[in-house]
C-alpha cells in the first residue's frame, strides 16, 4: 500500500428518488508517472492509481481507466442517478495491487 493515501468523497446526504446528483472525489496519491528521473538519472518507476469506479447498490455509475497523465491527487466529478436510498461505493485501484475503498450512504426524501 502506497504511503499516506487518503480518499475524500462529496455526496449529498439526501436526494429525491430518481434525481441526478453530482459527486466529487479526490484521493491523495503521488501518481508517479514513470517519466521522471531521480538525482542519479534513474527512471523512477511508475506508481499510479490506474482505475476508479463508483457503484450504487451494486450497479455501476462510472468506471474510469486512468493513465499517468492524470494529476497528482486524482480528482473526478460526475453525476449519478439515485433510484432509491442506498450506498455509494467508491474504489480506487493502485498499480501496487492495493485497493482503497470508501462508502457514502444517501437517503431518499
Amino acid at each position: 500500500m502506497a504511503k499516506g493515501v487518503k480518499p475524500r468523497v462529496k455526496v449529498p446526504k439526501s436526494a429525491s428518488a430518481g434525481d441526478s446528483i453530482t459527486i466529487k472525489t479526490l484521493i491523495s496519491h503521488k501518481m508517479e508517472s514513470g517519466q521522471r528521473k531521480d538525482s542519479d538519472g534513474k527512471i523512477i518507476p511508475r506508481s499510479i492509481i490506474n482505475r476508479f469506479t463508483c457503484d450504487f447498490n451494486g450497479e455501476n455509475v462510472i468506471d474510469v481507466t486512468i493513465e499517468p497523465a492524470v494529476s497528482t491527487n486524482p480528482y473526478f466529478q460526475f453525476d449519478a442517478k439515485v433510484p432509491e436510498a442506498g450506498e455509494f461505493k467508491f474504489t480506487w485501484y493502485d498499480d501496487d495491487g492495493s485497493v482503497y475503498e470508501d462508502t457514502k450512504a444517501i437517503t431518499v426524501e
Binding site: K6, R8, K10, L26, S28, N73
Partner: peptide
Amino acid sequence: DFDNPAFVFVDT
C-alpha cells in the same frame, strides 16, 4: 473546500 486539494491534507 472540496475542490481545494489542500483539504485532503487537512483531513490527514
